[in-house]
C-alpha cells in the first residue's frame, strides 16, 4: 500500500519522511502482538459492516469511514474508558467525531461494543432509525456530540475538555477531524483556545487521507504543513501511520504522558482503505457502493490477510 501512496501522493509522503516523522521506536509495553491481532480482526469486521450498511442505505461516505477505521477501532477497543450500559456516565472518556460524515465507522464500532443492537445498523439513514446520516447525540447511544457540519467539533471537544478542567475530572476527550475540514477557520480558533487554556486532556486525530469531496486537498487549498501549523499554534504534534495500531496506541500513550499542551496526532491514512477500487478514488468520498461493488468489496475485505 505504501508504494501506491508514494506513486499517488509522492509529494506528501516524501515531505513527511524528510521530517523524520515516520517510524519512531516502539516498545511492547503499550500494545502486544495478541492485542494487535485482535484489533486487526475487529477492523476487518468493521470494514465489512461499513460496506454492508452503506450498500443497504444506498448513500453515505465510505472513503472517510474506511480511512478512520483503525483510529476508531483503537479508541473503543483499548483506549477509551466507556461503559456501553451507561453511555451518559459522567466519568467516561468522550469522542467528538468532528468529521461527522465518517459516522458509519463509529456506528458499527458502537454497535459491536454493545451500545445498541447490531441489527439497528441495517436501518442506517432510514426514516425512524436512530442512526442519522450524520451523528446525533440525542438519538444514538454512545454518540457524545452531534456533528456533521465541518469545523465545529473541535470547539465542542475543547468545551468538554475545559469542563473536565474546571471540575478537576480526569477523563480524556478525543476528537477526530479531517484534512479538508482543517480548511475551516473555526478549527484554528479552537486550536488557539486549546493551547491557550493548556488543554492537555484533549487528544485530537487528524485523519490525513489527503482527499476531499472535489479533489486532492493539496490541489484545492494548501499549504498542508500541518505539523508546522499545529506546532506553531502551541500543540504537541506527532505524525503516524493511521492504519498501524502500534503507532496509534503509542501516539496516544505519548499524548497521555505529555503535559500542558493539547496533543495532535497527524494520522497518515488512505481514503477508502481496504478496498482496492475505493482507495484514492474520489468517487467513493460520498457515494455508497452498489450492486456488484458491494460483493466485490466484501470479498476483498474477507480475503485480506493480516
Amino acid at each position: 500500500m505504501k508504494e501506491k501512496r508514494l506513486s499517488i501522493d509522492f509529494f506528501i509522503v516524501n515531505e513527511l519522511d524528510a521530517q523524520g516523522l515516520i517510524s519512531p521506536e516502539w516498545s511492547n509495553t503499550v500494545i502486544d502482538e495478541k492485542k494487535i491481532q485482535h484489533l486487526k480482526n475487529t477492523a476487518q469486521k468493521v470494514r465489512r459492516k461499513i460496506i454492508e450498511i452503506l450498500g443497504r442505505a444506498g448513500s453515505g461516505h465510505p472513503g472517510g469511514s474506511l480511512s478512520s477505521t483503525e483510529i476508531i477501532v483503537s479508541l473503543y477497543e483499548g483506549i477509551m474508558d466507556v461503559d456501553p450500559s451507561q453511555p451518559r456516565k459522567m466519568q467516561r472518556d468522550r469522542l467528538v467525531l468532528s468529521k461527522g460524515h465518517s459516522c458509519p465507522a463509529l456506528y458499527v464500532m458502537l454497535a459491536f461494543k454493545g451500545f445498541f443492537p447490531v441489527e439497528d445498523l441495517d436501518h442506517l439513514r432510514q426514516w425512524g432509525s436512530h442512526l442519522q446520516g450524520h451523528p446525533d447525540m440525542k438519538s444514538t447511544p454512545g454518540v457524545d456530540m452531534s456533528s456533521g457540519s465541518l469545523g465545529q467539533g473541535l470547539s465542542a471537544a475543547c468545551g468538554i475538555a475545559l469542563a473536565a478542567k474546571i471540575d478537576k475530572r480526569d477523563f480524556w476527550t478525543y476528537c477526530i477531524i479531517g484534512d479538508g475540514e482543517a480548511q475551516e477557520g473555526q478549527i484554528w480558533e479552537a486550536s488557539m483556545f486549546a493551547a491557550h487554556n493548556k488543554l492537555d486532556n484533549l487528544i485530537v486525530f487528524l485523519d490525513f487521507n489527503k482527499q476531499q469531496i472535489e479533489g486532492r486537498v493539496d490541489e484545492i487549498i494548501g499549504p498542508l504543513q500541518y505539523e508546522e501549523k499545529w506546532k506553531s499554534f502551541g500543540w504537541h504534534v506527532q505524525t503516524i501511520d493511521g492504519h498501524s495500531f502500534k503507532e496509534i496506541f503509542h501516539a496516544v500513550d505519548t499524548a497521555k504522558k505529555s503535559r500542558f499542551k493539547p496533543f495532535m496526532i497527524i494520522a497518515n491514512t488512505v481514503k477508502g482503505k481496504g478496498v482496492s477500487f475505493m482507495e484514492w478514488n474520489l468517487d467513493f468520498h460520498g457515494t455508497a457502493p452498489k450492486g456488484t461493488e458491494i460483493e466485490k468489496a466484501i470479498s476483498e475485505i474477507n480475503d485480506s490477510a493480516f
Binding site: A156, C158, G159, I160, L162, E189, M192, F193
Partner: peptide
C-alpha cells in the same frame, strides 16, 4: 475566548453537554 465567536459557541456546546 478572544475575537472568535464561532469558537465561543462551539466551546459553549461542549461545556453544556458536560
Amino acid at each position: 475566548v478572544g475575537v472568535a465567536e464561532q469558537n465561543m459557541i462551539g466551546i459553549a456546546s461542549g461545556l453544556a453537554c458536560t
